[in-house]
């Protein structure tokens, strides 16, 4: 239960916003475009522009901000560590000194920039996962990667594996919760040193693996009796077409990339 609450992967929030109704392929390419734009330069102008675009997307998604805040919280520590390391290790103008720890001006600027960039990437990908159901997402990836089938990459199988993996995260999280409780009832306490703790995880990890394998076997049988044949392209229950909305978002992505490239030398910081 706890795991399911904190990990947003596969946590699709259903709504009927413009973003929700856009095809997964378009949204995947858009996310890639935004991430590439963010990594193109060290320009604060680009950074501000991208955040402006991001805010528009967040509003367009019609998903309450707390769903995004959750995934932001998950990387907060990573961002803080990035910032602190940059601030300590880069530059020469000492801003603030505690003992032998010296925060330097260039580092603080660079750390802030990298931190903002990291947040942007997380938010941009969360827009994708929050507005796209895992099944659509896997389908979209499948379609985008289809050309690889010519060089014998089993794209259909990969996308199926991904769909199943996403689908089973909450199931296994529940199972893990049950196992932890059962072992707690038998006196398990998760305290002690690192090695002790690792040892104490065995009674949780082993049953979880056993149950995952049993579920996998059941699922494989269930799919087989319902006529699943690996590698065959299956028809879709819902057929959607690329529409005006897709063209609009694709155009917007292109515009964002172009503007980011154009502004890449504006208001940068140097090392």
């Amino acid at each position: 239960m706890a795991l399911r609450d904190t990990v947003l992967i596969g946590q699709f929030v259903p709504a009927s916003s413009a973003l929700h109704r856009t095809r997964a392929e378009t949204k995947i390419l858009m996310t890639l475009g935004l991430i590439v734009s963010a990594f193109l330069s060290k320009s604060f102008a680009v950074q501000s522009f991208l955040y402006f675009v991001l805010i528009i997307l967040l509003l367009l998604s019609q998903v309450p901000l707390r769903f995004y805040a959750k995934s932001a919280r998950a990387v907060l520590w990573l961002v803080l560590i990035t910032f602190v390391f940059n601030a300590l290790l880069t530059g020469s103008h000492v801003l603030w000194q505690i003992g032998w720890l010296a925060f330097k001006l260039e580092g603080v600027v660079q750390g802030a920039f990298f931190g903002l960039r990291l947040f942007f990437v997380i938010f941009a990908s969360t827009v994708l996962t929050v507005t796209t159901s895992p099944v659509d997402l896997a389908d979209g990836l499948n379609n985008l990667l289809r050309p690889l089938q010519r060089v014998r990459v089993p794209v259909e199988e990969f996308s199926l594996i991904m769909t199943i993996a996403l689908r089973f995260i909450p199931v296994l999280a529940d199972e893990a919760d049950r196992i932890v409780k059962a072992q707690k009832a038998r006196g398990l306490t998760l305290s002690g040193g690192v090695m002790q703790r690792i040892e104490k995880l065995i009674p949780i990890v082993v049953p979880l693996f056993v149950s995952a394998f049993m579920k996998a076997e059941d699922l494989a049988l269930a799919m087989e009796v319902r006529g699943y044949v690996p590698g065959v392209r299956r028809s879709k229950y819902k057929v959607t077409r690329f529409g005006v909305r897709d063209i609009g978002f694709a155009f917007m992505t292109l515009l964002v990339v172009v503007v980011s490239v154009a502004l890449r030398e504006v208001w940068t910081f140097s090392l």
Partner: peptide, 14 residues
């Protein structure tokens, strides 16, 4: 307090 889950054999590990 002893607690026996449904299908308690699913928690075997040893």
């Amino acid at each position: 307090i002893g607690f026996v889950f449904q299908f308690p054999e699913h928690q075997f590990f040893a």
